[in-house]
Every structure is written in structure tokens, then in C-alpha cells.
Computed example of a mutant assay.
Amino acid sequence: MAGPIRRRAGEPEAAGADDPLSGLAPLLRVQPHLDDVCRFGGAWAAPHEQEPARQAYFHLVTRGQATLWRPGRAPLQVTAGDILLLPRGDAHVFHGVGPPPSTQLPVTVRHAQSLRFKTTVGAEPDVELICGRLAFEAAPQTLIVTALPDLLVLSVGAQPLATRFAPLLAGIREELNDLRAGAVAVAENLASALFMMMLRAHLETSAPAEGLLRLLGQPLTARAVRAMVRDPVHPWTLDELAATAAASRASLVRAFRAAAGVAPLEFLTDLRLGLAHHRLRTETVSLDRLAAEVGYQSAAALSRAFLRKYGVRPGQARQAEAPPTAG
């Protein structure tokens, strides 16, 4: 994979993008989870292990400078105003500017609401990081992830669009500093908006990427994708999708395979199953109703397709996502 892609807010839009976000937005269905507010100084390091599937790491650098280290990659210096996204949840370590410390200062951890506040002991903090995870909850998750580089960095700084990004960063930081009622929920909603703006900046400053972004960046495939996103329950045929895209069946299949490695109806299956998976995670709904609402003729048909895609039945997936009962 290519190295980190660093975007500067406000650079001109790539030609021919055909407004990819109008198709991307309903697919993203992401849920940010804020985990840590880190205030470090002196000799410090903050390791992050590989995250499970569907979990991306993100970090907001709200003060100072730090170094991001990833196995097999050159160290990356980050500074206040940088927003980092690791879509595949790769293992990485943050530490202070310069080489990794041989010894580290102890860190105190204070819990407040659902957050951990981590602070070094024995040194005045000069770096602040807000760290969290982003769950890709809807379909097609694999295409969303493959559409992005291993590391995406948005440098807000003093760029022309800083007036749009800076208030969101400041709002998140203020909510987490004050911790008033509902602060984490407000901050996570701001983080969700920030993530969407980050993707928009990525799209506006690059040629269409592989996978989903490439599908949405080409008018022929974008028309078919948007039709399926608007009405995934419709019994789409390849003929209908080709007509919607104003292309021949063969041309549409070639374009989908070239962009994302799947045929149009495979994409539709991923979309439906991803929506079903999302609803199983977030709602209590019968399998019969769920099947009808995501485009399957029966619960049995949904269950078979779900098993092929995820390796478990829908009921098992629902149980796996259920919160533990109090003992």
C-alpha cells in the first residue's frame, strides 16, 4: 500500500469527481467512539494494538507535536491541528518528538464518564491527543476500507478552510475539558462530522481512489451505486442497473470489476447484508421483517446469505453484539 496521504484543507477539487460524497454519505453509517484524552510530557509513548475488523483508529492532535511510528514505515511527525485516520486499525505507537524513549514516565489514568484521561507524572504536559475508534457499521465495509489508504492525515493548521475544521476540533476539546452532561455524545457527533469533512477533503484533493471511492468517482458506476443505495430493497436486475447507468450490461460489469473487483449485483448483496448487519447491531427487529426490509424474500434466504458473508447466522451475530447482562 502507499504511504500516508496528507491532505491540506482548501486545495482545489479534482476534475470529474461528480460529487462522490452524494453517494458515499449514506454508505458510511459510522459510529465514532472516543476513548482517551492523553496529556503527555517528557519521555512518553502510547502504543495501540491491532484493532479487530470494522474498527478504525482516529487521533486528533489538539496541542503540541508528536511522532507516529508504524512497523516497517518511516516515523511521521504530527502537530496540533492534524487529524489522523488509520482505516484498518493497524498497530502503531505515538511518542514525543525524536527517537522513541528508552524509559518512560509513569502515567496516571482518571476515568470520567466513558473516557480515560491519561497524564504523565513528573513532567508538564506539552502534547494533547484525543484518541478513539471508528466503527464502519454498514455496507459495503470492505469496499469502504479498501477505498482509503493505510493512513490518512488531514492537516488543518492555518489552511484556507481552517475556519470550518477548527471550530469542530475546538468544540470536541471544549466538551471533553468541561465534561458537562452529554459531553461525550456531543463530542462524538462532532467527531462524526469531522470525519465526513475529512473524507471530503481527501476526495477533493486526489484522483478517484480504488474501490468504493472509484465507483463513486466515475459517472457510469456512480449512477448505478446511487440507485442501489437509494433503494436497496428493489429487486434490481443487471438490465435495470445498466439502463440507470446509461451503459450496456457488459460495460457496467467491466467498470465495476475494474473499480472495485466486484460485479454490480455482488455490490448489491454486500450493501444489503451490511445494512442487515448494522440493524442487527443497533435495533431489535425480527428476522422476517429484517429480511423484507433489506431485500430478501425470506428470513431463511437472508440467513444463508449472511452465513456465506460473515461466517455466522444473523441470530448469532445479534447475540455477539448484545451487551452482557449484570451478574
Results as ranks from 00 to 15, higher is better:
Thr120Trp: 14
His48Val: 10
Leu85Phe: 09
Pro32Phe: 01
Val78Ala: 08
Ala56Pro: 00
Pro87Cys: 06
Asp36Thr: 15
Glu51Met: 14
Val107Lys: 15
Gly96His: 14
Ala135Gly: 03
Ala112Pro: 02
Phe94Ser: 12
Val30Ser: 02
Gln55Leu: 09
Ala66Asp: 00
Thr119Ser: 06
Ala43Lys: 14
Trp44Phe: 15
Glu137Arg: 15
Gln50Lys: 15
Gln104Glu: 15
Ala123Met: 08
Arg133Gly: 02
Leu28Glu: 07
Arg133Pro: 00
Arg70His: 05
Thr103Arg: 15
Asp90Asn: 13
Arg70Trp: 08
Glu49Trp: 03
Pro106Gly: 11
Ala45Met: 07
Glu51Val: 01
Cys38His: 08
Val121His: 06
Thr62Asp: 07
Ser114Leu: 07
Glu128Lys: 06
Gly72Ala: 11
Val61Ser: 08
Arg116His: 11
Pro140Met: 12
Ala43Leu: 11
Ala46Ile: 02
Phe117His: 10
Ser102Trp: 06
Phe40Ile: 00
Val30Arg: 12
His92Arg: 13
His48Cys: 10
Val93Gln: 09
Pro47Ile: 06
Ala56Thr: 07
Ala80Glu: 13
Phe117Gly: 05
Arg70Phe: 09
Ala112Val: 10
Thr103Met: 11
Arg63Val: 03
His59Trp: 05
Gly122Pro: 05
Arg133Lys: 13
Arg70Lys: 13
Gln104Thr: 14
Pro52Leu: 11
Gly72Glu: 09
Glu51Leu: 15
Gln113Ser: 11
Leu60Asp: 04
Thr103His: 10
Thr120Val: 13
Arg39Met: 06
Asp35Asn: 09
Ala138Glu: 10
Trp44Leu: 05
Pro87Val: 04
Ala135Met: 04
Thr120Gly: 04
Ala91Tyr: 04
Arg110His: 14
Gln65Ala: 13
Ala138Trp: 09
Val97His: 03
Leu129Ile: 13
Leu85Asp: 04
Arg63Asn: 04
Leu34His: 00
His111Thr: 13
Arg73Leu: 09
Arg39Glu: 15
Leu134Asn: 05
Pro100Leu: 09
Pro52Gly: 05
Asp35Leu: 14
Leu76Tyr: 07
Ala91Arg: 14
Gln50Glu: 06
Val127Tyr: 07
Pro101Leu: 13
Ala45Leu: 14
Gly72Pro: 05
Gly81Thr: 09
Val61Gln: 01
Leu115Trp: 03
His111Trp: 12
Thr67Asp: 00
Thr119Lys: 11
Gly81Asp: 07
Phe58Asn: 03
Gly98His: 01
Ile83Ala: 03
Leu86Val: 11
